[in-house]
Design a protein around this nucleic acid. Structure first.
Length: 484
RNA sequence: GGCGCGGUCGCCAAGUGGUAAGGCCGAGGUCUGCAAAAUCUCUAUCGGCGGUUCGAUUCCGCCCCGCGCCUCCA
């Protein structure tokens, strides 16, 4: 079954396919590593992970490249403030990012290129653009892209360059024309930024100045790296380019302009953008107190798996409002999912270990579509509708008919596509050992009182345990303790 | 001002030209001394007003409200 996806460029939902018939070449804009990524960033990365996984299930054999932006104003400022080198600073935050990705069960991209490791590739593009007349050296010595030289500028975001020019303030209330004297037109953007004092040790020999033929010392502009790295690993034309909706303009628009002007070929064929997350109904900001990182949430006792579930629980094309109440809801849902899986396994005469082991394969898309979980997969293939997929999964999760090996293999496929890890059963570690001896003694005494049917004493003891911050959970043959 | 998205049960969220999936929460029942768990049942006519239609939540128009982007931003 073919997979379809909305394309920002044409504003139509069209089939996804690998132009070379072999691998779906996809590029995603990764994080700028200047601090901890927040859950809004991770909504996009989680969704892109679902895309990567779903295309795999659909047989498109994805080649997934996601970059790390490790040089820009923020990383330079951050490292200066830290008193560390740019490399040390970005390494720290890259590692943190990777750890977060791992807790969210995101598949590591096939290639994860860094901007600073691809300076020559970037310089080469700038020199080509200078030679082609698409770029010029501005008043401040930086190299700018001449937007007017690219007649298709605006085709992705559907903006008209003239309108950008006539507008005198942006959403932040700042004058867009502030440093216009350095550029021919306001819409022109920096390809290569000439070295400045505040850049410190961060500079490289850049493109050769058209007049002096000497390299311009400096650093790459923001948009350039993605063009250079996507082209390097995926070719001058590739299948799919994705990112957060805010990147549509100017980032992606600029990538198209510089890449197509430099290569003379169409850049990415298909563009996909993930709509942003709101937190508590508003855009996340530290001053509003609705700014969350994964670490914040985990520190508050929430499960990263629940965060992941919540982040993908609405369609990538609609806004998601993140609230702590909904996160709790996601935890409940996941608990129910685990129990539902256990029940189906029991019906099929399989154990949890069977399900978790690699021996129990996922079903192929074709086979999965024939089972009761087929609709869940179909929803993913239809413009990656994660919300509908989850709904379809819930619809059949408790059906007797889903308790067979073929259906369970299909369920495993669906969970794989969504990147939801089924939790292995942990019957063996009963959690009672963490309680203090004092609490355990009380719980034991209560159990004995209960056996003696001395309800008054049992209730008093339960109360004491509760006051110590623990809850007694009875089993048929004993008790467990849970932190209240 | 330009471009775009959305308003569906308390919360989150699918969806369709023929009378609205699912998750969470809540309520009630069953079951266990109590507690928890489990399990069952229950809860919407789709922002407003017009239009098209045999029939609209779904198509069109207008209005109201919210949100995003317009060169820091996943």
């Amino acid at each position: 079954m073919e997979m379809r996806l909305y394309d920002t460029l044409t504003r139509e939902t069209v089939p996804l396919f690998a132009a070379d018939g072999k691998r779906l070449r996809m590029y995603a804009c990764g994080p700028t590593v200047y601090g901890p990524a927040h859950i809004g960033n991770f909504r996009t990365f989680s969704l892109l992970d679902v895309l990567r996984r779903t295309t795999e299930v659909a047989g498109l054999n994805p080649l997934y490249v996601r970059n790390i932006t490790d040089v820009d104003d923020k990383t330079i400022k951050g490292s200066a403030k830290d008193g560390s080198t740019l490399g040390e600073f970005t390494k720290k935050w890259t590692e943190k990012f990777h750890a977060d990705c791992a807790s969210l069960n995101l598949i590591v991209p096939d290639v994860e290129p860094r901007a600073t490791e691809h300076i020559p590739e970037q310089v080469a593009i700038v020199e080509k653009l200078l030679a082609n007349g698409n770029a010029y050296v501005g008043g401040d010595g930086s190299v700018y892209y001449r937007v007017a030289s690219f007649c298709e500028y605006g085709k992705l975001s559907h903006f008209h360059p003239e309108e950008l020019q006539t507008q005198d303030t942006n959403s932040a209330g700042k004058a867009n024309a502030a440093d216009e004297y350095e550029r021919d037109q306001v819409a022109d953007f920096a390809l290569w930024k000439a070295q400045k004092d505040e850049d410190g040790a961060v500079h490289w020999p850049g493109p050769r100045h058209p007049e002096t033929n000497l390299p311009i010392e400096g650093r790459p502009g923001w948009h350039l790296e993605c063009s250079a790295m996507s082209i390097k690993y995926l070719g001058e034309s590739f299948d799919l380019h994705a990112g957060g909706e805010d990147l549509c303009f100017p980032h992606h628009e600029n990538e198209i302009a510089q890449s197509e002007a430099a290569t003379g070929k169409p850049f990415s064929r298909h563009w996909m953008h993930c709509v942003h997350l709101l937190a508590e109904g508003k855009k996340m900001s530290k001053s509003l107190g609705n700014f969350y990182t994964l670490a914040d949430l985990v520190a508050q006792g929430y499960d990263a798996r629940a965060v992941k579930y919540l982040l993908i629980s609405s369609s990538y094309r609609s806004q998601l409002n993140f609230t702590l109440a909904n996160l709790k809801g996601a935890e409940s849902a996941l608990k129910k999912l685990d129990k539902g899986i256990e029940a189906l396994l029991a019906k099929a005469g399989l154990s949890r270990a069977d399900f978790d082991s690699p021996v129990f394969d996922r079903a192929s898309a074709d086979d999965a579509l024939k089972t009761s979980f087929g609709p869940a997969l179909e929803a993913l293939f239809d413009d990656m509708n994660t919300a509908a997929a989850l709904g379809a999964m819930w619809n059949v999760l408790r059906d007797e008919a889903s308790g067979n090996k073929a259906a369970l293999a299909a369920l495993k496929t669906v969970l794989y596509a969504l990147g939801i890890q089924p939790i292995p059963s942990k019957e063996d570690d009963a959690g009672a050992d963490e309680a203090p001896e004092e609490v355990k003694a009380l719980a034991q005494k209560r159990w004995e009182a209960k056996q003696a049917k001395d309800w008054a004493a049992a209730d008093t003891l339960r109360k004491q345990v509760t006051e110590l911050g623990w809850t007694i959970l009875d089993r048929k043959d004993g008790w467990d303790l849970k932190k209240a």
